[in-house]
């Protein structure tokens, strides 16, 4: 297993769109490390030839409904929930850089 360092935590935080203050990084790394080391105990088990389970209860019949769209009763209400908007448009910071 790879060693967990402050750099690991900073790298994973970037992947997860999170950030940590420099002063909390040490204590956070310790917590993170403790759990990662605990879950690594699974490596002691031999799982050669065992197939993975993703869902515990598989049903025989196909369960997918027909792929047809339907109208939501009040779409404007959904847009109203946005924290910043301009008319029916949701406002976000600029994503395309100007020349």
């Amino acid at each position: 297993m790879a060693k967990i360092t402050k750099e690991t935590v900073e790298y994973v935080a970037k992947l997860a769109s999170l950030k940590f203050e420099a002063k909390e990084l040490d204590s956070y790394t310790a917590r993170f490390k403790r759990v990662v080391e605990y879950v690594a105990k699974l490596s002691a088990l031999d799982t050669e030839g065992i197939s993975p389970t993703s869902h515990a209860v598989e049903e025989k019949d196909p369960r997918l409904r027909e792929d047809v769209s339907s109208k939501f009763a009040d779409a404007d209400k959904l847009i109203e929930a946005a924290p910043a908007k301009s008319g029916r448009l949701i406002e976000v910071p600029k994503v395309i850089e100007q020349e």
């Binding site: 297993m1 699974l42 490596s43 799982t47 065992i50 993975p52 389970t53």
Partner: peptide, 15 residues
């Protein structure tokens, strides 16, 4: 593979 896939295999053993 080391974590998620491994855990799913252990999940099979538990099941």
């Amino acid at each position: 593979d080391a974590y998620y896939r491994k855990a799913q295999c252990v999940r099979t053993l538990i099941k």
